[in-house]
Design a protein around this nucleic acid. Structure first.
Length: 577
RNA sequence: GAUCCAGUAGCUCAGCAGGUAGAGCACAUCCCUUUUAAGGAUGGGGUCUUGGGUUCGAAUCCCAACUGGAUCACCA
């Protein structure tokens, strides 16, 4: 159904809208409707003995209506939940005129309309806490029918499940699938829990540029845009690492940012082009301290959200009790892939990949080869939270060399449910070493690695002024939210996940048809027949077919229009050219 | 990017050895003046995603496209 054609139900709702106006009821009143409680509060704290809530005002959407003659039951849904309404004709209409109940409530109010009610709370014979309505006000008319989802004893009937529908029209998803709201509430609580921890330690929440001249801090393909007055390309940030480190250089000792990052890469269950990363940098700390801090942080989040550190996810329990397992990258590869890559050079690694059945190509350097082995052979085994520590130096151009082994770096990732959730370093603060690492990235880039890092000269200059020893951490908030809310796809923890645009066929206006020489009275007919643009009509090869179609439509629907001649229709098709 | 699956009423789905399009909910009208996803009856609503093809005849079979989903690849 194209958006410009109204369904029968939509037409009926527009008619009831007219009738409301005729009855003197403003379907979109301006005045505020002050409420004094909400559905949740009533359901949680009403007590028949105390007889509280005897004068309530609440507002929300009308979600069901069961008319039983002179009495009716309905449900109102506000942000917190739903409650049953009991409406009696003679309470709503105390005088002789019963129009408000018989016509306005019964016929002119639809599911989806916003209403405000006042009345008193009581318990029905069926034992359901309900509001006995004394007064009802229409607050906003709904013109599009909602899908009706019903639920009885925990069983949901006719739930809206089509992912496309749910993601494209999230507003409807939120109305009819109440559990969805809870996921997003938890996501926000998750971020607040982290914020609370950082603030309690005195770390400063900051904001750094999203538009960057050099997209640094990660290996990823960026989005490019253009600044007109500077006449230069700008990139949407892929990470904010380098800016936060500049702030550590500047003398802040703990900074963090919830950063929306953008990567121009594939989309799937774990990846959205824009996603949220928490990055935090703390001076005078190292990655060992950070590992303890991450354990504390994740456990706090689990406790704040669930009151336990054992979280159900996808038919298993993920246990966030401290401490998490810690294993070095080389040991992990030895354990799960059965190979020792500690002493291997690039050729040795490539051969190892080949013998393990892992595809490689010439652009891959040591770092990428090792990462592929890890990704293929190790990651899939790691369900419970596991720190992978001490990554090879080639994989980590911004990370400090290991204090005891220069081939390694002081880096860890936290893997949960087979996916990286955190990534942290003892930050590289040796400007000479950093410059060499960037040079190595440049060589990779020249080899064809389009994700190799750019050299950021200003960042090097900052390091040359001196950066204290610092540990930094990045947390994939979306992935953490998926785990903490038990959602299978990143699209379920983003309100508006990226989708291909809807193919909206924009119909031409009547004026455009008239301008093309088509008489006004035939415009609705052509629309009905699907010829909604002048373009479409001009593409018709046989005007005779169109002639027959519109004459047939005229007859069938008894429009009593004077049929045009075949020649006339032929002129429409050829146009007034 | 590859492979597989799906697209039928506002929603959830049936129909597919090719023969005039179905159900439940929603909607409308009427009856009933009454509660718990659901009182009863009647009715309206569909270019069966789009475009080609095979056929006397296609929702059904074939090809292509579009959109979505799943798996894989890519994603340090």
């Amino acid at each position: 159904m194209s958006s410009f054609e109204l369904s029968e139900q939509e037409i009926i709702r527009r008619q009831t809208l007219e009738e409301l106006i005729k009855a003197g009821i403003d379907p979109y009143p301006a005045a505020a409707f002050p409420v004094n409680t909400n559905t949740r509060a009533i359901l949680d704290t009403y007590s028949a003995v105390e007889n509280n809530f005897q004068d309530v005002r609440i507002a929300g959407r009308l979600m069901s209506k069961r008319i039983m003659g002179s009495a009716s039951f309905a449900e109102i849904q506000d942000e917190k939940g739903r409650i049953q309404l009991y409406l009696k004709r003679d309470d709503l209409c105390p005088g002789e005129d019963k129009t408000f109940y018989n016509v306005v409530f019964k016929k002119l109010l639809d599911i989806g309309d916003f209403i405000g009610v006042n009345g008193f709370v009581f318990i029905t014979q069926m034992g359901e806490i309900s509001i006995h309505v004394r007064g009802l006000t229409l607050l906003s008319k709904s013109l599009k029918p909602l899908p009706i989802v019903k639920e009885k004893d925990g069983v949901v009937y006719d739930a809206v499940t089509d992912p496309e529908f749910r993601y494209r029209q999230r507003y409807v998803d939120l109305i009819v699938n109440p559990a969805v709201k809870e996921v997003f509430r938890m996501r926000t609580r998750l971020m607040n829990s982290l914020r609370q921890l950082f603030d309690s330690r005195g770390y400063l929440e900051v904001e750094t540029p999203v538009l960057q001249a050099i997209p640094g801090g990660a290996a990823a393909r960026p989005f490019v845009t253009h600044h007109n007055s500077l006449d230069m390309p700008l990139y949407l940030r892929i990470a904010n690492e380098l800016y936060l480190k500049r702030l550590i250089v500047g003398g802040f000792e703990g900074v963090y940012e919830f950063s929306r990052d953008f990567r121009n890469e594939g989309m799937d269950r774990m990846h959205n082009p824009e996603f949220t990363v928490l990055e935090i940098y703390v001076a005078y700390k190292d990655y060992l301290w950070m590992m303890d801090f991450v354990e504390e942080m994740i456990e706090k989040v689990a406790l704040d959200l669930h009151g336990t550190n054992k979280i159900p996810y996808d038919n298993q329990i993920i246990d966030f009790s401290r401490p998490f397992k810690r294993i070095s990258m080389l040991d992990a590869i030895r354990e799960y892939a059965g190979v020792d890559i500690g002493e291997m050079n690039e050729d040795g690694l490539r051969n190892t990949c080949n013998s393990l059945g892992i595809e490689t190509d010439a652009t891959m350097g040591k770092g990428k080869l090792i990462d592929r082995i890890f990704g293929e052979k190790v990651e899939s085994h790691l369900i419970q939270p596991t720190f992978i520590i001490d990554y090879p130096v080639e994989m980590s151009p911004l990370c400090k060399k290991h204090r005891t082994d220069p081939r390694l770096t002081e880096r860890f990732e936290l893997i949960v449910n087979r996916k990286e959730v955190c990534n942290a370093y003892s930050e590289l603060n040796d400007p000479i070493d950093q410059r060499e690492r960037f040079q190595e990235q440049l060589r990779l880039s020249e080899k064809g690695d389009d994700e190799a890092m750019y050299i950021d000269q200003d960042f090097l200059r900052a390091l040359e002024y001196g950066m204290p020893p610092t540990s930094g951490l990045g947390v994939g908030i979306d992935r953490l939210a998926m785990i903490m809310t038990n959602q299978p796809s990143i699209q379920d923890v983003l309100f508006f996940p990226q989708m291909r645009p809807e193919k909206a066929e924009k119909p031409d206006t009547k004026d455009k048809f008239v301008a093309a020489g088509i008489p006004e009275e035939w415009f609705p007919v052509l629309q009905q027949l699907g010829y909604n643009t002048v373009e479409k009509i001009k593409k018709i090869e046989k005007s005779g077919k169109l002639h027959q179609e519109i004459c047939g439509f005229n007859k069938k629907n008894k429009l009593n229009l004077l049929n045009p001649s075949q020649e006339e229709v032929a002129r429409w098709v050829k146009g007034g050219e």
